[in-house]
């Protein structure tokens, strides 16, 4: 199949950047989107041009590195997939495909389609951990009984790969789905209860500092999330935040 690509090109963080048009006429419909990008880059290299910079690592939907806003949606038109899992069969012969970096004040562009998502790391550092002895006498996790529904919900929340699609799709560039998944994953389990109050307060504070927007419950994040993280997590985080705000002694 033949496709016309409209790709965001930006030399550096300070460069203004613009859309460039490229044509590819040897795309197979069973290729992944990233394989299609590889073909584009091979073509650019042969033409003596600079290849398009884009993030990727595992190419099997688990690392969360691949980003890209494709035809107006993060990770493109398919549901429950990352860009590396998106197939060219989702497009038609002759299509024009817009490829842009994830856009948010908290995700500044580094080059072309590569954005800096370290804001997520800083939010995680602010409270996304538990304190357990790691001296070698660590108690086996199985020794702590956990109700099955809680374990399931914590597991579902832990499926978040920190890709940032929730931020990219949200009209407010809000990071609430990501942060709520990281908060829930711990707070649902007994091991996470110890720091629960401090965790939610600190992670939300860091989230706001990073310049992400306010959630207005459009639900766009849940639809675009490749891991099906539920809005229930945001409600849980709101509850915990309220409780912690009025009861925390710090």
């Amino acid at each position: 199949m033949k496709v016309t690509l409209k790709v965001w090109r930006q030399k550096s963080a300070s460069d203004k950047g613009k859309i460039e048009t490229y044509k590819l006429d040897n795309v197979e419909d069973h290729m992944s989107f990233l394989e299609m990008m590889d073909i584009l880059n091979e073509q650019l290299i042969l033409e003596g041009q600079i290849p398009v910079a884009f993030d990727h690592d595992c190419r099997e939907g688990i690392c969360g590195m691949c980003s890209m806003h494709i035809n107006g949606e993060p990770h493109g038109p398919d549901r429950g997939v990352t860009t590396c899992q998106l197939h060219m069969r989702m497009f038609n012969d002759g299509d024009t495909i817009y490829i842009e970096p994830f856009r948010a004040k908290g995700f500044p562009v580094i080059k072309d389609l590569v954005v800096d998502r370290s804001a997520f790391d800083r939010i995680q550092h602010a409270g996304g951990f538990i304190s357990v002895p790691t001296s070698g006498n660590t108690q086996d996790a199985n020794a702590t009984p956990i109700p099955k529904p809680d374990a399931d919900k914590a597991f579902d929340a832990a499926a978040c790969i920190g890709c940032g699609a929730c931020v990219a799709s949200c009209k407010n560039a809000s990071a609430m789905l990501f942060v709520s998944a990281k908060v829930s994953q711990f707070s649902l389990l007994p091991q996470g209860k110890v720091e629960a109050k401090r965790r939610v307060l600190n992670m939300v504070e860091q989230m706001d500092k990073e310049g992400f927007g306010n959630c207005s419950n459009t639900g766009s994040c849940e639809v675009e999330c490749p891991k099906g993280i539920s809005l229930e997590n945001i409600a849980r985080m709101n509850r915990e935040y309220l409780k912690a705000s009025v009861s925390s002694s710090e």
Binding site: K6, H69, Y98, E100, K105, N172, G213, V223
Partner: peptide
């Protein structure tokens, strides 16, 4: 919220997910 996305998308399909 508007300011939280300082550079806007060229193509943004808000209706696809909300």
């Amino acid at each position: 919220n508007y300011k939280s996305r300082d550079v806007r998308y060229v193509k943004y399909k808000g209706g696809a997910s909300a």
